[in-house]
């Protein structure tokens, strides 16, 4: 597993004068790649839960969830998620979040869900578990979301109160 917390960030540098780490192309096409981003190798293409689908494999269907870890500034780790979080993809999110929450606990953790276009109860469950874990470990967990696809499920289930929800990464409160 890559060390997703190691990279320091030069918040001040802009433009090409300092480009020690160009964004990497990632193996999975729909993971968001940003500068200083490490891509978590996702566990295979099979859903983590035992599938009852014993028919043909799902290769003909695009089911993908992009998950990437970055550290845009010191002391902050961001998990960027793109795609639809449903029963099929929620286990991937769970794995990524588990990694993230096992990281150095002086890091604040943000979950960037701006690219999430659907959030099912299975995904909500993963988020809620993570919020509980964060609370238990006395860590700050911030959710970045603006789309109805994320905000509405959080609101309608009353889970929004478990998170600090902000509209943008820049709105994450300081330490």
């Amino acid at each position: 597993m890559v060390d997703s917390h190691g990279s320091r960030h030069d918040t001040y540098r802009s433009g090409p004068e300092g480009s020690p780490s160009r964004p990497r192309r990632c193996a999975r096409p729909s993971s968001v790649v940003r500068p200083h981003t490490e891509v978590i190798p996702l566990p295979g293409s099979a859903p983590a839960e035992p599938s009852r689908d014993d028919g043909a494999p799902d290769q003909d269907l695009l089911v993908d969830l992009g998950v990437a870890v970055s550290s845009p500034r010191a002391g902050l780790t961001v998990l960027t998620v793109r795609g639809e979080v449903d029963a099929l993809t929620a286990p991937r999110l769970a794995t990524a979040l588990d990694e993230l929450m096992s990281g150095p606990d002086d890091h604040r953790v943000a979950l960037d869900l701006q690219g999430v276009t659907f959030l099912a109860s299975s995904g909500l469950g993963v988020l809620i578990d993570t919020a509980r874990r964060a609370a238990r470990d006395d860590r700050t967990l911030v959710v970045v979301a603006t789309a109805r696809a994320v905000l509405r499920p959080l609101e309608v289930t009353g889970s929004a109160q478990l998170f600090t929800v902000v509209p943008d990464l820049t709105a994450i409160p300081g330490p």
């Binding site: 859903p47 009852r52 689908d53 799902d58 269907l61 639809e84 449903d86 099929l88």
Partner: peptide, 8 residues
Amino acid sequence: AARAALIP
């Protein structure tokens, strides 16, 4: 087909 991949 009753498969999770078709629910989307």
